[in-house]
Amino acid sequence: MKYSEYDIVDFLLDEFFIQWIKNPDQNNRHFWEKWIQEHPEKRGLVMQAASLIRSVKYGDDPEITDAMYVEIFENVIKTDSEKQRGSVSDGGNFSFFNLKNMVAVILIGFCATMVYLQMVASNETVISPPTEEVLITRTVPAGKRAIVTLADGSKVFLNAESELIYPKQQSPDQRWVQLKGEAFFEVEKEKRPFKVLTDYSEIAVLGTAFNVKEAHQELSVALVSGKVHVKDREGNQYDLAPLEMLTVDKAGKASKSGFDVLAVTGWKDRILVFQDDDLEQVIKKLEHWYGVDLDFSGEVSATWNYSGTYHNENLENVLKGISLTSGLDYRLEKGKVFLYNRNK
């Protein structure tokens, strides 16, 4: 059976699909992201299956304590070295110290592992750049976009009216950038965590692709692949899974939803997307995208909306496209756009 004929139970049974949710890697990620783009009508079903898979947890979930962890290990090693001393008989104090060392090593290792595993979920979030650090600031005005490649190879697509501050050299134990506005991140996977600091929030990742936008104290984080951990200004923490979007509004109310990959991240590939946008949204997008002032006169009906996708088009062509279907006309004058009702 083809994936396009799958119902929810088929997805829930499919090993390749489950692997993508549980252990995403380049192969399955590439496949499923492409597949969903090809089958947008199946996205709801896929999201539903994914969230069910993720929500299955042990009802009885006892955690092993540090004390128990060390005790078991110590007993295992002790039993082993006693046995060896019996046969080799040159152990003495040396093997005692050896044992202590081993326990210390494994304890350090355990802590390191836990720190490593919880890095993205860590509560410790103080970031204080060392004083000698050279910081680079990249500012993008309205109408422009930019791509910044960081020292570690991570790529940042900066949208119009945004600013990115980052250290020229990232420190050996962490990577960070500071963002105002909107950016799409393709973070190189490595063991150093990568943090995106915004005015009010903080996003921690290891290696992944996601979109961050913070404007007027409203935050939205949309995850395309991998895993991110978000801490909002109230200190609330959220984990996001692929194709989930977190929105935190001005009042601090958070919600998770799915999102349309093209509509949210299309800008990085120079795709301007209008999706059932009302007039105000259309005007805002045009001003932001082309860095122009737009003047509207006249009126449109309350149900007026516009949908359209433009790949790398100039302003005039987009205005033509809009006027073709919307009943509006336009005039370009001295870098200013006038938009008005055709019949008035």
Binding site: S51, S55, V56, K57, Y58, A241, E244, K256
Partner: peptide
């Protein structure tokens, strides 16, 4: 099994 509400949308 306990369904985690946090993970479910």
């Amino acid at each position: 099994i306990c369904l985690s509400h946090e993970a479910i949308l």
